[in-house]
Design a protein around this nucleic acid. Structure first.
Lengths: 223, 223
DNA sequence: GTCTATAAAAGGATAGAC
DNA sequence: GTCTATCCTTTTATAGAC
């Protein structure tokens, strides 16, 4: 038998009752599938198999749990993005940057981040939620976490697509983010209940093709 | 003095107390700025200056109010899209379709719809909310309203960009929607508190340039 | 660190007077 | 059609035993 000195929950999971991580993973799952504000603390603690009070003990409040989640999940993704961008910039030795690798440095970590989260599939939705349901408390956290990435990549794209005016570049970067976020959300317009989701790499390649062409487009209208 | 036979609210607005429209407009505003699930009935009725019970009298429930709102707002936009697509298809006489007009037929009504709503600025957000916070009750309504548009435009794009395989076309349509929705939401990555928002037509042209290039891109990788 | 119990507030909904 | 008053549920949060 399993030793039960940890109480009713005792020992049936990990050697040390890592309630905190269980809560984070449960919250992540529910935030992604149900939405930020529609997910209650009770749902989270129930999913995690812990007590309601645990959230307040470990995080203080639902909002602080959300912030902690963002820090744990988004920050590493952005670090990976920046590391890859660093490598590209080092290799370029001050010259123009190759567009597609820069794009991949931005896009691929987002998809990897999606498939790695808690071993669940559709967790890219969590990412989308952050954009669509901006809790007041997240405003500053998100800005802080994304500010550096946004600035660095904007400059990188400026070096990769030098023919673009600044304002046009800003907008195209915005369109790129829209494409990625919407795709991470996993909502498809056509393609009714297509049984199995396609492999990430295939989708990534499609995103890259689309956005690379969009970013490279001439600034005059084809009218 | 204003006649007061309409009670405490009497006569201080419109000749007939169009509570229903006031509720719709208030809900629209709050759904857009605060989010669907974070907006309470009390907030809506307060904003509208009417009584809490009015929502249930006129709509039956919060959910039904939302559905009514969607029908009133999204349906006309999609009708305009389809009318414009009809015209393009008639003019083409069975031949290939010109990409940019088809794109504009899809994109421009969405922006017009945004700036016309209740005379308020950032109401495109409401549109984005519908995508990001799919209330269960909306699933069927949204599917019903968008099904026709999605199918018709998918086929139109197939005729406009005939070199694309079906699956690639589906994805690029998906990317187009992502670009439009994210842009309608009005969240900018760069461009901190840029004072005045740019005119719609300028943004539309940028969206068209980006997505036209993305849709026309060759299917092989530039690697 | 975890639990039970409960406070305190906010949410949607409805009945019934006017 | 509109208002007041109220019911019931759910929510976040906390106090205090273990």
């Amino acid at each position: 038998m399993i030793e039960s000195r940890f109480g009713p929950n005792g020992g049936n999971r990990l050697p040390q009752p890592d309630t905190k991580n269980r809560l984070l993973e449960a919250a992540e799952r529910l935030f992604a599938s149900e939405g930020l504000s529609r997910t209650s603390l009770r749902a989270i603690t129930c999913e995690a198999g812990v007590n309601v009070a645990a959230v307040h003990y470990h995080f203080g409040s639902k909002d602080e749990l959300l912030v902690e989640l963002v820090r744990r999940r988004i920050a590493p993704m952005n670090e990976e993005r920046l590391a890859r961008l660093d490598a590209i910039e080092r290799a370029s030795e001050g010259g123009p940057l190759p567009l597609e690798p820069v794009l991949r440095a931005f896009v691929e970590p987002a998809f990897r981040f999606r498939s790695e989260m808690s071993g669940h599939e559709q967790l890219g939705r969590f990412f989308g939620r952050l954009y669509a349901e901006p809790e007041e408390i997240l405003e500053s956290t998100l800005r802080e976490i994304f500010e550096d990435v946004a600035k660095r990549f904007r400059d990188a794209f400026a070096r990769a697509v030098p023919h673009l005016p600044d304002d046009e570049l800003d907008w195209r970067f915005h369109f790129l983010v829209g494409t990625v976020v919407h795709t991470l959300m996993g909502r498809r317009e056509m393609q009714a209940p297509t049984d199995d989701p396609p492999p990430d790499q295939e989708v990534i390649d499609r995103v890259i093709r689309f956005t690379a062409a969009g970013l490279s487009a001439p600034v005059e209208m084809g009218q």
